[in-house]
């Protein structure tokens, strides 16, 4: 489902003496349907960079990066937009939404974007919010005013609203209490069970042990300084 071969990436800072900073080289990994792969490595090793590249948020320099049957290295923007809409979900650490939009609509949006009837999309969103223990009185409010943990759960609900065949999870259990952590882990397990391919970053070692089938240390993809 997610196939990465010999992927490399560098940043060119045009406004700082055109410094070229290589950040990744020779990255390769594979995530099959129903499988969860965890990225490990020290902070700054390139876990988030790799995740962002898989989502199409960062451009890859060379190599192959295939999600479904789309190679993101060569894909047109609109192909990536369609991929994100239908195939590839992403739960980032931070919630980025239009201010003022009610939480319920934030969560329902991925379904509305797919053309689902609004009533059905909202019902589904309600189910997820209830499961993630977001009090009903908050549903009509914008999540921009919520606490960190609440925002994180709204973000997760949004990421799980549509049954994406591929999912990227960036620290989904950070800043969650035990009860909600359990809910999120169950959601991930359910996604795996329905065949979703999951690539994630989990600092929570117990969670990592519970849901990851394999771990990939991105330190191996860090370019040598000499290179």
């Amino acid at each position: 489902m997610i196939q990465i071969e010999n992927l490399s990436k560098s940043f060119t800072l045009h406004n700082q003496g055109s410094a070229v900073i290589p950040v990744m080289a020779g990255a390769s990994l594979i995530v099959r349907p129903g499988e969860c792969v965890g990225l490990t490595g020290q902070s700054g090793a390139g876990k988030s960079t790799l995740m962002r590249m898989v989502y199409g948020n960062y451009l890859a320099a060379a190599g192959r990066l295939v999600v479904g049957d789309l190679d993101l290295v060569t894909a047109a923007p609109r192909e990536i937009i369609a991929l994100r809409r239908h195939t590839l979900g992403y739960v980032s650490q931070f919630l980025r939404v239009v201010p003022r939009v009610p939480t319920l609509d934030v969560v329902a949006e991925p379904l509305l974007a797919l053309g689902r009837p609004p009533a059905e999309a909202r019902r589904h969103a309600e189910g997820l919010l209830a499961r993630l223990n977001i009090p009903e009185r908050l549903w009509a409010l914008s999540p921009t005013t919520f606490s960190g943990g609440e925002q994180q759960r709204v973000n997760i609900a949004r990421g799980f609203a549509h049954a994406y065949p591929a999912l990227l999870l960036d620290e989904p259990t950070a800043s969650l209490d035990a009860v909600n952590r359990e809910v999120v882990l169950t959601l991930i397990e359910e996604a795996k069970a329905r065949g979703a391919a999951i690539l994630g970053i989990f600092h929570d070692e117990a969670a990592r042990a519970r849901i990851c089938d394999r771990l990939v240390d991105v330190t191996g993809f860090t370019p040598r300084l000499a290179a």
Partner: peptide, 22 residues
């Protein structure tokens, strides 16, 4: 420069875009 909105904003390739974003 042109491309996916979040990609252009988060990983700008052209000097001018980098300046604009920063």
């Amino acid at each position: 420069e042109q491309g996916l909105t979040d990609q252009v904003l988060d990983d700008p390739q052209h000097a001018y875009t980098q300046l604009l974003v920063s």
